[in-house]
């Protein structure tokens, strides 16, 4: 029997055997490799490897902050909620932050929020029905991407100018980029917060009783004003 490419059933059988043999050869060759002698790597090399791993680690941590949902929220719905049409009673899972600080871990910092253990925290339900809203948007910016936990805004005339807003449950493990950034302690809506800055990138980390918000971009201290108008309902 010959198929449209001119291959016979025999060719097909050979292909199957070739794949099985390749698996066997790879395994045999791996087993045949002798353990080499210990190498003394240079400090420079080990430092570079640490940086490679740290960079990947940082990406992983950033990804956690954002906690991308696969479901995209509707922009219109976000604005309706921003206008005050709440659909969830936050009192049911209110928590209380007793202490807030950043724990330096090199290129990133872990956000430490010590919670009142007597508070009831049940975000698993809340995350399905609340929406992230931003009720102050600087002039000239428009939504470029919107998800359940994240909204990206870009300047209409220059898309390189941007800011984004993300949120995460207050009891989640959160890390933020603090590499080479100066930190300024501020207050947002009566809660402790921090403004971080380096030449081309700034961010604000703030929270309320239930959520942590991370606002970042390249528009300077305007991020603080935005942070005052970020909320999940």
């Amino acid at each position: 029997m010959i198929d449209e490419k001119g291959n016979t059933a025999f060719d097909g059988a050979f292909e199957v055997m070739l794949s099985a043999a390749a698996e066997k050869a790879a395994e045999d060759m791996g087993e045949e490799i002798q353990k080499p002698e210990e190498i003394e790597f240079s400090e420079e090399h080990e430092e570079k490897m640490k940086r490679i791993f740290a960079r990947e680690n940082r990406k992983l941590r950033r990804k956690r902050i954002i906690k991308y949902s696969k479901r995209c929220a509707c922009a219109m719905l976000a604005f309706v909620i921003a206008a005050g049409v709440g659909i969830y009673n936050v009192e049911a899972w209110r928590s209380k932050v007793l202490n807030f600080f950043l724990e330096d871990e090199g290129v990133a910092s872990k956000v430490i929020l010590e919670l009142d253990e007597s508070s009831e925290v049940s975000h698993s339900n809340a995350t399905d029905s609340t929406q992230l809203s931003v009720s102050y948007i600087p002039e000239g910016f428009d939504i470029a991407d919107i998800r359940d936990y994240f909204i990206l805004y870009k300047n209409v005339e220059n898309p390189d100018i941007y800011f984004d807003v993300s949120s995460s449950p207050i009891d989640a493990n959160i890390y933020i980029d603090t590499e080479n950034m100066t930190q300024e302690h501020i207050t947002i809506n009566g809660y402790d917060a921090v403004y971080l800055e380096k030449e081309s990138y700034q961010s604000v980390l703030c929270y309320d009783d239930n959520w942590v918000y991370y606002i970042s971009g390249n528009i300077g201290r305007e991020l603080i004003k935005i942070a005052e108008h970020v909320k999940r309902f």
Binding site: F53, E56, N57, K59, L60, R62, K63, D145, F150
Partner: peptide, 13 residues
């Protein structure tokens, strides 16, 4: 946005 080829702590380890 930041996406990582390392997806989990297990991957990183």
């Amino acid at each position: 946005m930041f996406f990582s080829d390392i997806e989990t702590d297990d991957d990183r380890d």
